[in-house]
Write a protein that binds this DNA or RNA. Structure first.
Length: 168
DNA sequence: CGAATTTGACCAGCGC
DNA sequence: GCGCTGGTCAAATTCG
């Protein structure tokens, strides 16, 4: 049908078919101040954010379709496990949904988002755990190279409160 | 009118 | 070699 852009096809080919995905992952406390900068969820107060950072070593660490030669491409992947009723976590950036697919391990479909920016091809995928629909797993891929468009630092404040006793 | 979103189809990698 | 899952794109639609 319509010819596809070869340029776009270059980034195609990323396959992360991990059998036991979203299953048992190492959850560690990670400094999320640099990643989250805003949230508009009403349940922010009870939002328990657990960050699980794991190198792409566990999953496919391949990104660009490089010809023979370099076969090991580092793919920064950060999975955030956030407990919230809303799956849309506003991190301060603009995201454009480019696809939605249902995974076998989850009853709920996985949403694929992409950062709307000229040259900033940061991808983000949001998936809700079928076991606990309150748990939303947000996986970031890539790094932003541009300032935030929104000046919402609410989430950062929230994170601070979560780690520190909220003042009465 | 423009941008973002939606849904379906297609593709690629891996498993069997 | 075929089938399955996961991932992405593309066109159409909708919202602002």
């Amino acid at each position: 049908m319509a010819p596809m852009q070869n340029n776009q096809k270059l980034i195609l080919g990323s396959s992360s078919s991990s059998a036991a995905s979203t299953s048992s992952l190492n959850i560690e406390n990670f400094n999320s101040q640099n990643f989250f900068h805003g949230a508009n969820n009403k349940d922010k107060m009870e939002a328990e954010t657990r960050i699980q950072h794991h190198e792409a070593n566990n999953i496919s660490e391949r990104g660009e379709k490089v010809t023979k030669g370099d076969k090991k491409i580092k793919r920064h992947r950060f999975a955030f496990q956030t407990r919230s009723h809303v799956d849309i976590l506003d991190d301060g950036y603009r995201w454009r949904k480019y696809g939605q697919k249902a995974v076998k391990n989850s009853k709920f479909p996985r949403s694929y988002y992409r950062c709307t920016h000229k040259g900033c091809n940061v991808k983000k995928q949001i998936q809700r755990l079928s076991k606990d629909e309150e748990i939303v797993v947000t996986t970031y891929e890539g790094m932003h190279s541009h300032p935030l468009e929104k000046t919402t630092d609410s989430f950062e404040q929230i994170l601070q409160q979560l780690q520190t006793p909220a003042p009465s």
